[in-house]
């Protein structure tokens, strides 16, 4: 069934997860354990449910009409779907980066300051400090330090916008970072920068990254989960998944025979 390594502590535990969009079942009986402070990539053909899985973790799917979620999810020992669960605390703990860069139409500073201002009520010097730190961590500081208080986030290039979104997310200080195809709208150089960032973040954060780029998955991840038709086919060390997968369909997919 599902392979899991037990060398590192588990921060996200999923058991028997079923997700339905109306009549259609998007995720079928998913069970998985995500290791702390490691990078896990989610791969699989389009429509296989990997994005749905990601968005179930920080409850971004709540907004979809007619969605039904069954099963048990534990994130750092808490059930995000428990009655009375604190949605804002969940998202403070679990940050997200989207496929298309989506900075707010305001200055770079205001973009990054939004999270810490709303969550922690920071202002003035403390806020400045957090903003600068986040911009540095997102490797954007050197490019924007001269005009980040004045320049609108929308006036950055696509790659810079995505790093701005990463900085905005980091400024809230999440433990877990979800990335939904973070490079698919970026050029190769920007992609390389984001990949480098993922490597740097993995020491202190747990990262889940959805990607269609198999080389990228192999490059950046410690663990890989292969989804197909809403099922989690195989999940384990990336090395094993890419060189010696257990399942035939995983083998076919990672060798480029379909998808």
């Amino acid at each position: 069934m599902i392979e899991t390594a037990t060398s590192t502590p588990v921060v996200i535990g999923v058991r028997g997860l079923n997700v339905f969009y109306g009549e259609k079942q998007a995720l079928k009986n998913i069970s998985a354990e995500i290791h702390e402070k490691k990078v896990t990539t989610l791969i699989g053909p389009s429509g296989c449910g990997k994005s749905t899985f990601l968005r179930t973790l920080n409850r971004m799917n709540d907004r979809i009409e007619g969605i039904r979620i069954e099963g048990d999810i534990q994130i750092a020992g808490e059930d995000p779907y428990a009655k009375g669960a604190d949605l804002l605390a969940l998202r403070r703990r679990v940050g997200m980066v989207f496929q298309k860069p989506n900075p707010f139409p305001m200055t770079i500073y205001e973009n990054v300051a939004m999270g810490p201002k709303m969550h922690y009520g920071l202002r003035g010097k403390q806020l400045d400090e957090v903003v600068e730190e986040a911009l540095r961590e997102a490797a954007l500081w050197d490019e924007v330090k001269d005009d980040f208080r004045k320049k609108n986030g929308l006036n950055l290039s696509g790659g810079q916008q995505q790093r701005l979104c990463i900085a905005r997310m980091l400024a809230v200080r999440p433990e877990i970072i979800l990335m939904d195809e973070p490079c698919s709208a970026l050029d190769p150089i920007s992609t390389a920068k984001v990949e480098e960032l993922i490597g740097q973040l993995s020491g202190a954060h747990t990262l889940l990254v959805v990607t269609h780029n198999l080389q990228q998955a192999e490059r950046i991840s410690d663990y890989t989960a292969f989804f197909m038709f809403g099922e989690l086919v195989e999940h384990g060390h990336s090395k094993a998944i890419f060189t010696d997968p257990v399942h035939r369909s995983t083998q076919d997919y990672v060798s480029g025979r379909f998808g």
């Binding site: 907004r63 969940l90 989506n102 305001m106």
Partner: peptide, 27 residues
Amino acid sequence: VPESLTEAAYALGLSRCQTLYRVVLPH
């Protein structure tokens, strides 16, 4: 107002009201 902005605000952990007054309404 683009759905991507609203999503960004929610994913950042803004409450419904904050999303409305900080992100949606200004836009």
